[in-house]
């Protein structure tokens, strides 16, 4: 898992039916000092995250575990919202 900032949303009505009612969010992965790294990607929201929030995601096949495991095609899911930026203690 890694930390990311939610920077946007994606609307998709024609989609895999296991994704009905699920929210696609655009996330920007951060390094341990909360600096952006890499390119923004899309994550499925499992915890009600909103734009601007600090979150962490889970990638790979396990990303489908918060949902119907064998039929939810997601490779990146937001599984937690970090209380605030200051709730990331990085002793460096």
């Amino acid at each position: 898992m890694q930390i990311a900032r939610v920077i946007g949303t994606v609307v998709s009505t024609v989609k895999n039916e296991a994704l009905e009612g699920r929210k696609f969010l655009i996330v920007e992965t951060l390094d341990a000092d909360l600096k952006p790294k890499g390119k923004p990607t899309i994550a499925l929201d499992a915890v009600g995250a909103g734009v601007g929030e600090l979150v962490f995601w889970c990638r790979g096949k396990e990303a489908s575990f918060p949902f119907k495991r064998d039929s939810t095609p997601t490779d990146c899911t937001i599984i937690g919202i970090i209380d605030s930026d200051s709730h990331v203690l990085n002793k460096g």
């Binding site: 920077i7 946007g8 994606v10 998709s12 024609v14 989609k15 895999n16 734009v51």
Partner: peptide, 14 residues
């Protein structure tokens, strides 16, 4: 690799 959704729109703040 699989296409799982057609995008209607997306917005973001950077």
């Amino acid at each position: 690799s699989a296409i799982i959704g057609v995008i209607d729109s997306f917005d973001f703040v950077k």
